[in-house]
Amino acid sequence: MKNVSISVFAFNVQNNLNEMVDLKKVAGKGIKNIFTEYMKDIQDKYESIPSKEKVYKSEYHIVEEKTDDDEREKYTFMFGKIKTGSYGIASEIVDSETGELIHTKTDKEADVLPFYFCMAIPASGKDEVYKGLLIFQTIGINSMRSTFETSFNRRIKEIDKNLKFVVGHLAPISYIQNYMDHGILENIILTKYKKYEDPADRAENGFDWEKQELNINKPKNFLLKKKDAILNYLKGGTGFSEIVEINDFGFKYDVLKFDFKLGSRTKRINLSNLEKVAITEDVTERVDMKGDYPSQESMKTVMEETVEEYMSEIGAI
């Protein structure tokens, strides 16, 4: 069984001056109505993103206004399910048990997988709201983020060409620092990408880059030595490549991730792009599986709980 994870981001909508606009009034509609229209419009057949060689289609969506015990509005919760997959490379489908060729897939056929996601914006009363929460479910190495980010931005621009949908930095420094202060650093994951020099290797693997990964399990005293360096980087300083020093191995990393355990929960924090610091959490043990995929109800519950946690952390509720 593949691991089921969620990745948490912030989102906003910006005008052509790169100024954030009120999410409740985007293009005179508001993000809630744009989300509903978007999901309804792609429910009948698969749409295509030629530039990314992706197809996608909505399967389910719901919008709920969440309130506290006193019936005061907390946030708008938008939850959905999208099927998406890639095309563009011909391949052979083989039965792993018999070794027999079952089907020859053309470059126009796509393998599609179902993914859940949610958007949430805090209630504000009469105040404006400029940032929301965006959570994607992943399964194994597969995700729908690229598909959604591109297609939803396309929908925003269809409504108003001067607007753009931006997915970016979520975690405040205090949030990450809390994990460094009170959590346990379980793993450091370093990844680098190297371009295949031999055209035969590129043809055999179907892409131009080779991925190499190095895992450091339960690093001893790492945070005692490197906590200040990490915080300096998060505050906009330099030194990303010096956070983990492994020059003796000749491994210059492009991607840096930390696995922190706090209580019974483990979160993966990706520091590779300061503008899009990503937080990933393995939720395999928290969802019910139906066959190879998480059930809709359990996935919705996990995302609701995660929204509550992050909204509270950033002071939105």
Rank of each mutant, 00 (worst) to 15 (best):
E128F: 07
Y193D: 06
K25Q: 09
A120E: 12
G30H: 06
T84A: 09
Y233F: 14
Y60W: 04
Q43P: 01
T238L: 11
N15Q: 01
G183Y: 03
T284N: 09
E128V: 06
Y56N: 06
K192I: 13
V26I: 09
R265F: 13
D254V: 01
S151C: 01
E64F: 09
L223E: 12
V287Y: 08
E309P: 10
T238F: 04
Y75M: 12
E242W: 04
L234A: 07
S298H: 10
M119L: 15
I89D: 07
R155C: 00
S272F: 01
I317C: 12
S58I: 04
F207P: 02
I246V: 13
G132M: 09
S58P: 03
F249K: 11
M119V: 03
Y130S: 10
L223F: 09
L223Y: 05
I139G: 09
L234F: 08
Q296R: 13
K32Q: 12
K276D: 12
V283Q: 13
L256W: 02
P294L: 11
E297S: 15
V283R: 10
R154T: 02
L133T: 06
V277S: 11
Y293T: 11
T76N: 10
S48V: 11
K52P: 07
E305T: 12
K74Q: 15
D70M: 05
K220V: 15
R286W: 05
F240V: 05
K252D: 14
Q14I: 08
I243H: 03
V8G: 04
I82V: 15
N142A: 12
Y87F: 13
R155L: 00
E210I: 01
E204W: 02
S298G: 08
G250A: 13
I135T: 06
L185G: 02
V55R: 09
Y116N: 13
V255K: 10
D70Q: 11
L134I: 06
G315K: 06
R286E: 14
R265K: 14
E59P: 02
Y179R: 08
K194Y: 14
T138W: 01
V26L: 00
D107P: 11
F115I: 05
T284P: 12
N273Y: 06
M311P: 00
R155A: 00
I139S: 07
D181S: 14
T36K: 15
N142K: 14
A110L: 11
M78C: 02
T36D: 13
E73W: 03
Y46I: 05
V21P: 03
S298E: 11
D69C: 08
K257Y: 05
K126V: 08
T150L: 00
F207D: 13
D107Y: 04
K164W: 00
V287P: 11
N217D: 03
I6W: 02
N232I: 06
K267Y: 12
D259K: 14
E53G: 06
T306P: 00
H103T: 07
M39W: 05
F136M: 00
N232Q: 06
I159D: 00
Y60V: 02
F165M: 01
I279Y: 07
F152N: 00
L274G: 07
F9L: 10
T284L: 12
L133F: 04
I279M: 15
I42A: 00
K83T: 03
A10Q: 09
E37L: 10
S295T: 15
Y253P: 09
D198M: 08
S86N: 15
R286K: 14
F117I: 02
K235R: 15
G315W: 05
I184P: 02
N217E: 06
K192S: 08
S174F: 04
S124G: 14
